[in-house]
Amino acid sequence: MEKFTTLTAIAAPLLRINIDTDAIIPSREMKRVSKDGLAEGLFAGWRYLSPGSREENPEFILNREPYRHARILLSGVNFGCGSSREHAVWALHEWGIRAIVAPSFGSIFHGNCVRNGIVPVVLDNAAVEVLARQVEADPGRHLVTVDLAQLAVTAPDGSRHPFSLPDADREMLLEGLDSIAVTLKRDGEILAFRDRDRTRRPWIYLPTLQERL
């Protein structure tokens, strides 16, 4: 996974609440068994004029200059709620988004962000609105900085908004770690747990393929 330390970029305010993963990437846009090729379908229901078409809706924020080059998204509460589809995060990432600032996130979505190099930044609603107002005054020049090392967002006017992220999530993003490799370092503990558990809860353990034959 790509590492994230700090990013200064154009931020796009999409201040709706409860933006669900169906809206981020509609099901009809998940056409292949693949993590790639999803950017085109990002926000398809809003970005294009009619379902299935590729004719851009000029009103939609990510179709406008300079927001087409945004790397940061500002949004409302419960961003990424709904379906667990990781495709939502893959689509955002492929389109170019690296950080999302919102008052809260859908819990599966939050985990998916961290595993794919997108920083989920929780700031309260008032702070998100302040950021949005400053950005909107001159979006191409009023950039926002997300500093993961310092756990702070710097607004265009230079004010700092600290945020928190669990250590493990922060480390995963900073180092670009592969979570499976990290866990497999504890293989001994996992196997020992399994042996103990098997005597305690034998009914959990179904016969293996060999045992079934």
Partner: peptide, 29 residues
């Protein structure tokens, strides 16, 4: 990897939806 996995809480299972990458993690470890 499906958000409505919480359904199974109805039986007293601790069940929850995950993403596909977490799915790989669970499968592998």
């Amino acid at each position: 990897p499906d958000s409505h996995t919480c359904t199974l809480g109805g039986l007293g299972a601790l069940a929850w939806g995950i993403g596909s990458t977490e799915g790989e993690h669970a499968l592998a470890t």
